[in-house]
Design a protein around this nucleic acid. Structure first.
Lengths: 294, 294
DNA sequence: GCCGCGGATTTCGATGAATGGAACGCGCTC
DNA sequence: GAGCGCGTTCCATTCATCGAAATCCGCGGC
């Protein structure tokens, strides 16, 4: 339960404690945290005290949870923020046109990381959550980063292995390479139930001023209902418009998008790369907005 | 530039460095960070190294910026997450009905903190950003927390003073109290250009199973075009539906919403409470989604 | 080409903050 | 009422941390 066998520096230990919270954890007890991080309990106790004092954690009855201040801080992170703000109008246009799940994603290491998601009651509920990640090779957005990116990227992905998520997941390197070639020539990426059964998606690349892919926009929905090739032009158009709008921002460095370290050797302890998401139950909740509005 | 005159603990210092990033800061140099935190440069240098190693910060040419990992971590914070996920469908319904800015907010100390924002191209661009904050007394959402909350809350707000943001801001305690009384009996809150000239809003409270206000939903838009009293029923309906959906989650503790410390004495170093937001330029960008989609 | 300057980086010995084993208190269950 | 799991407190030891000073680096001015 401890990739790095207990760091010695106080700061690193504190951060390790924060990192011990997985994507679906809510409350963790002191003992649990001590176990996960491999730190002695008294030490954990003291550090937790400081983290709570600062607002990174909050006490809850008998446990700890991530605190509001981390949420606020997270919203300030420049890379997602700039992209999201610029992209939102386009995502919303796409949503309004399709009423399906619309995603904005960037590459993070080997995974697609979702920066924003626009969806509604009518959209198919899918796993995927802002801040969540999925392997690049089995997502429409991720394939774009692999198809348009440096070959080294692809090599790293292949080296990590192609795990099977559904019967449609591409697990043969050769097939993936061919699929990526098609992606490149088509100009858009497709995922046919490769990450989740019954779920398909189309994605188009967002370029910076040098035509490097810095992000991707996708529409995701029910595999049966979604006509991917018909949606593709819409997604591409939006992505291109966004690229154009961003071009000056990427040129003058206002918006720095490429990951800072394209390949840090032993890779920063990623914490958890695995299945991140799961959806809140989203009960029926019959009543909706009714009364008239402009 | 240093509220707390340099904490001694290593962990606290590291966190202070993170907190030194304001809402609109992007890159900060080592020297700048040293100045803001009051820490000696070599110390800052060392700590920054560790923060970068963990992914809390990223190097950029000659400076540092908040790192992706903080964004991801921020998305895991349970309090906003649960609320957002439950509320999103309702917010989207309201947006679709009004095509104006729709907000989900909670009270944080003395401020309204925006957890989610749904808006589109047709909505009036306003200051306000997810993770941003505005004083409670001059916002539609904030007034709900004051009107429905314990009197102590209001007292704290008054003690902090009612600063003027626009000619319409309520700065007289007496007037505010009367406005809150009306808010309470009406069941919804109104803000007529009190925080920003030309911008008005209606907000309705979201209750937990004990009928305590845990959040608020609002519609914000052009003061001239928005018929607040006509929108109010829609907002209230949505808020009530959401309250009902949440009731079981709040009852069994799945969703813990009330701030953990309603009144911590000297108040956790809030970093920056002031004007948080500002909007990305949002250029014209003529092209929109065109091609047909279902 | 040389100098000066502001910032980032490295060094290194003294120091005290951090450490964690051990012990305690509390609320359970069996 | 003994046993157990968990959170909390103590405190003597020690090792990570500190920061003044020195060095390095890039840049612009002369």
């Amino acid at each position: 339960m401890d990739g790095s066998p207990a760091p010695k520096s106080v700061l690193a230990r504190g951060l390790t404690l924060l990192g011990a919270f997985g994507p679906s954890d809510v409350d963790l007890t002191l003992t649990e945290l001590a176990a996960r991080t491999g730190l002695p309990k008294p030490t954990v106790h003291r550090l937790l005290g400081e983290l709570v004092g600062w607002g990174a954690l909050e006490r809850t009855g008998n446990g700890y949870r991530l605190g509001m201040r981390l949420f606020v801080l997270g919203q300030r992170v420049p890379r997602p923020r700039g992209l999201r703000e610029a992209a939102l109008p386009y995502l919303e246009d796409l949503y309004e046109a399709s009423h399906e799940n619309v995603h904005l994603a960037v590459l993070d290491g080997i995974d697609t990381l979702f920066l924003e998601k626009v969806s509604g009651r009518r959209s198919m509920p899918i796993i995927s959550r802002v801040g969540g990640r999925l392997p690049a090779y089995c997502t429409a957005t991720g394939k774009l980063f692999l198809a348009f990116g440096a070959p080294e990227r692809l090599r790293r992905v292949l080296r990590a292995g192609l795990a099977r998520y559904t019967p449609h997941t591409i697990t043969m390197p050769g097939l993936l390479v061919r699929d990526l070639a098609r992606t490149l020539e088509r100009g858009y990426g497709i995922n046919r139930e490769e990450s989740e059964v019954g779920v398909s998606a189309v994605a188009a690349p967002v370029f910076d001023h040098r035509r490097r892919v810095i992000a991707a926009i996708s529409i995701t929905g029910h595999a049966g209902r979604l006509d991917l090739d018909r949606l593709a032009p819409a997604v591409r158009t939006s992505a291109l418009s966004l690229s154009r709008e961003l071009s000056h921002a990427t040129a003058n460095g206002t918006l720095v998008v490429p990951a800072p370290a394209l390949d840090h050797g032993p890779a920063v302890d990623q914490g958890d790369t695995g299945r991140s998401c799961r959806r809140a139950s989203r009960a029926s909740s019959s009543v909706a907005t009714s009364s008239g509005a402009s």
